[in-house]
């Protein structure tokens, strides 16, 4: 701690820090839309997502010095966001790790195709059988542990390694949850689209 008037070096340091902080805040704000889009699918309502994003930015702006410049700021923000989401007690409603039944990767296609009149339909026409609402609802029904990974990788377009870092789980766990999460999603989509 220095006494009396700040030295020129100190003044310069303070000015630099203020500049770094402003730059950090601007960069973080530029990412708010992308952060929100991911947050929106990690929780079940728009209000919850908005609260979560606000809390995330409040914390990020307070602890901005912990961010290492040059690393992925979007991943850093989402790490804060997922931690806050867990702090909110989300894990209390955690679903059991085992899903009752899990179909293979071709399940959805086979189910959709089987309801179409023509033989061998075009893939794009098969996809058109899924309504936007059914996709939103199906994703919301994927259990949290799987959905977190699914949302980060398939919607947030994070790499396996980044998702592992954000969620603080091993890369192998990211891969297995992603694989199962996608299968569960397809199963839910099939249930919503094809009634048997």
């Amino acid at each position: 701690m220095s006494e009396g008037a700040p030295t020129a070096a100190e003044t310069r340091r303070i000015a630099e820090e203020a500049r770094d902080r402003v730059r950090f805040e601007e960069e973080a704000l530029e990412l708010s839309d992308q952060v929100f889009r991911v947050a929106r699918r990690l929780v079940n309502s728009r209000e919850e997502a908005e609260d979560l994003v606000q809390d995330t930015y409040a914390r990020a702006f307070r602890s901005w010095q912990q961010y290492q410049p040059g690393t992925n700021l979007r991943a850093w923000l989402l790490r804060i966001l997922t931690n806050l989401n867990i702090d909110k007690g989300r894990r209390q409603q955690r679903t059991p790790d085992l899903q009752p039944l899990e179909e293979g990767d071709y399940f959805l296609y086979n189910r959709l195709e089987s309801t179409m009149p023509d033989e061998n339909p075009d893939e794009e026409r098969v996809i058109e059988r899924l309504s936007q609402n059914s996709v939103v609802d199906a994703l919301a029904e994927v259990p949290h542990d799987f959905r977190d990974v699914l949302v980060l990788v398939d919607i947030g377009e994070f790499s396996y390694a980044e998702a592992a870092q954000i969620l603080d789980i091993p890369v192998g766990t990211v891969m297995s949850r992603l694989h199962r999460g996608r299968r569960i999603l397809k199963q839910k989509l099939a249930e919503k689209t094809v009634s048997v």
């Binding site: 929100f36 889009r37 996709v135 939103v136």
Partner: peptide
């Protein structure tokens, strides 16, 4: 899926 669930800030 990415397009269907997209909701901007």
């Amino acid at each position: 899926v990415r397009v269907a669930v997209d909701e901007p800030i």
